[in-house]
């Protein structure tokens, strides 16, 4: 359980984090969203004890963060932004070093090493020097070092940054596998990641919390949520579509010819629209129900409030 209360961090005159408060319970996978420089990394650095807050408090499992830092760092796994690693070591040496510093010994150490090497699939590169590996591998090693002691709290700063789609998928699957009864916090600016991995989204901008809810709630904020997009195989009379009960607005994309019908807030318009289409025998060849465009919501929340 993490309780953050009125957390602030100033760098000279810049307020990187500004009176941020939130609570995270075990089992939650929290996606930290925000534009670059929003204060995501700074917040994570304070949660892991790397930075001290200017004001406010962090309480983790009943202990205070800067105060009991060393005890808390035993139960936190952290992947810093950009996955910094000791490049002159081999992968195996590096993992052994982290296990050593984490105080793992004997059988447990061997078992944990085997476990993470298997989970993150590092067999093939164990004896390669870290500097000579690709970015994808470096991120995986960073992830392996973060989970080597089986932490209760996992904090990952942009874990999928710079990975190819296959690697992203693997990392996400890994995070999902890990996260039963644990707290996972990931920061990202990739929105699809939040709906793919997280069960809670926190949007921060200029150090302030702007949204806190499930990814679904975030989607609901989009005007595209439950909107219907149609395409006709040949020109047809569309004048009636805007008059359907529950449809608030109709938009036509002139390039593709797609017609999007936006529902009034809280209304479902699929049934009346299909009824209308079949009644007038409209030549529909494409019919999609939109789930909501997160990019738009994100822009609306961060730019709308920021301006």
């Amino acid at each position: 359980m993490i309780v953050v209360d009125n957390l602030s961090r100033h760098f000279h005159r810049l307020k990187a984090v500004d009176e941020l408060s939130f609570t995270i319970k075990p089992g939650e996978i929290v996606g930290f969203l925000g534009p670059n420089g929003a204060g995501k990394s700074t917040t994570m650095k304070m949660l892991t004890g790397f930075l001290e807050p200017t004001s406010g408090s962090i309480e983790i499992n009943g202990q205070n963060m800067p105060g009991d830092a060393k005890a808390l760092q035993e139960v936190i796994g952290y992947l810093p932004e950009g996955a910094p690693l000791y490049g002159d070591m081999t992968v195996f040496q590096f993992l052994c070093f982290i296990a050593g510093v984490r105080g793992l010994k004997g059988k447990r150490r061997k078992a944990r090493l085997q476990n993470v090497i298997e989970q993150v699939e590092l067999h093939d590169v164990l004896n390669r020097q870290i500097d000579k590996l690709s970015k994808g591998f470096r991120h995986r090693i960073g992830l392996a070092q973060a989970i080597i002691h089986d932490p209760d709290i996992l904090i990952l700063d942009e874990p999928t940054d710079g990975l190819d789609p296959n690697q992203k998928h693997e990392v996400r699957e890994l995070i999902k596998k890990l996260s039963k009864e644990k707290i996972v916090i990931i920061s990202t600016h990739i929105l699809e990641e939040v709906s793919a991995v997280c069960n809670r989204a926190l949007i921060i901008h200029e150090g302030k919390k702007l949204f806190d809810g499930t990814p679904y709630e975030l989607q609901c904020r989009s005007r595209y949520h439950q909107a219907i997009t149609l395409h006709f195989s040949y020109a047809a009379d569309i004048s009636g579509l805007a008059e359907i009960d529950g449809v608030e607005e109709m938009e036509i994309d002139r390039e593709t010819g797609d017609i999007t019908l936006f529902p009034e807030p809280g209304k479902l318009i699929m049934a009346p629209v299909t009824e209308h289409v079949s009644h007038f025998r409209l030549p529909v060849d494409k019919f999609t129900i939109e789930t909501g465009r997160l990019d738009d919501v994100f822009r609306e929340i961060t730019i709308g409030k920021g301006a």
Binding site: K45, T48, G49, Q145
Partner: peptide, 11 residues
């Protein structure tokens, strides 16, 4: 190289 962040967040 940023490894100080890794080092200082280890126990």
């Amino acid at each position: 190289s940023g490894t100080i962040e890794l080092l200082m967040t280890l126990p």
